[in-house]
């Protein structure tokens, strides 16, 4: 390295620290958080502000929206459609239905799975953990499409059920809501398992023994002691599953013919070029989703768990 301004990393850090030490604690904290704040601005605040701006712009027949105009036309259209029932029941309702069903299934399966990992040891534990992460290493499209041969009317599941005599004729799982739900559960499950497992992993297992010692049967001990302590993980898993599944795009798109809100937004943008309507629908759906998450918090918080929002 040449040049008068070149500094080695340690001296650069030292001079940086010198500057920081001079500042008050709150300013210092702000300075240290500056990169994070800049990142948030870039990837969230600015795009979201743009989205809000487009949602209150007037539609245009020449461009995707009329730049510089202000109009609530898109919102009145969205609310009109919602109130008329088609959009509400057909698309938004369907999205929230998928979101709710997927969340319930995912959290229940993830609880058992995470509990099994917590209770296992050695090779079994490694295998269980690895099998959670493994699907994340393949591309989402492939692993979602992989359900088609599994679930199709001539697929593995149907053949098994038919040959076992449990079915007289094949069931159409795909393309269907069942396929969309299964595919979406599969996508979010690893995150839910890891969220719950991370809480269970740090849990002191003696308390479960203490509960049994004090007269709780095994299932009762789990309900009284494990679940309340796992609640922070359950809440995180629920929020991830719900937010992701309401806005699901890939699984319903690949495994179902029904429209979810995300697919509809795509049609509005790429097909109809109605940017303000798409943006307004997104904002409204986000509001509904926030309300949904609020309900999740309220409900799960009642079951104990020391989850602080602050």
């Amino acid at each position: 390295m040449t040049g008068a301004n070149s500094q080695t990393l340690p001296t650069a850090l030292a001079s940086l620290q010198e500057r920081l030490v001079g500042e008050s604690a709150s300013r210092r904290a702000l300075l240290l958080m500056a990169p994070l704040i800049a990142f948030e601005l870039l990837v969230f605040v600015i795009p979201f502000a743009t989205l809000l701006r487009i949602s209150v712009a007037a539609p245009s027949s020449e461009a995707v929206y009329a730049e510089g105009t202000w109009s609530l036309e898109a919102y009145s259209e969205v609310f009109g459609d919602l109130l008329a029932g088609d959009l509400l029941l057909g698309i938004v309702g369907y999205s929230f239905l998928i979101g709710t069903v997927v969340t319930v299934l995912t959290v229940v399966i993830a609880l058992f799975y995470a509990y099994a990992i917590r209770r296992s040891s050695g090779l079994v534990k490694s295998l269980l953990l690895f099998s959670v992460v493994l699907p994340l290493l393949t591309t989402l499209v492939i692993r979602t499409y992989a359900f088609t041969p599994l679930l199709s009317p001539t697929g593995t599941i149907n053949e098994l059920l038919l040959s076992a005599g449990l079915l007289s004729e094949p069931i159409q799982f795909v393309p269907n809501t069942v396929g969309a739900v299964v595919g979406q559960v599969y996508i979010v499950l690893p995150y839910a398992v890891l969220a719950i497992y991370s809480v269970l992993a740090t849990m002191d297992w003696d308390v479960v023994e203490a509960a049994r010692d004090l007269g709780a049967s095994r299932p009762r001990a789990v309900v009284e002691v494990v679940l309340p302590q796992a609640m922070p993980g359950i809440i995180v898993a629920s929020v991830i599953s719900f937010a992701w599944s309401v806005g699901a795009y890939a699984a319903p798109g690949l495994l179902s013919d029904d429209l979810t809100f995300a697919i509809y937004v795509e049609q509005l943008i790429l097909g109809d070029l109605r940017y303000p309507t798409a943006a307004a629908l997104s904002v409204v759906t986000m509001g509904l989703m926030l309300a949904g998450i609020g309900i999740i918090f309220a409900v799960l918080d009642r079951f104990g768990g020391e989850f602080d929002l602050a």
Binding site: D204, D206, V207, E209, D213, R220, V225, Q229
Partner: peptide
């Protein structure tokens, strides 16, 4: 007899109090 049906009660080494 399973633990929860016994008339014994244990004080554990790390006390195992329920944190919640």
């Amino acid at each position: 007899l399973p633990a929860y049906e016994r008339t014994t009660s244990t004080v554990f080494q790390d006390w195992a109090l329920f944190p919640h």
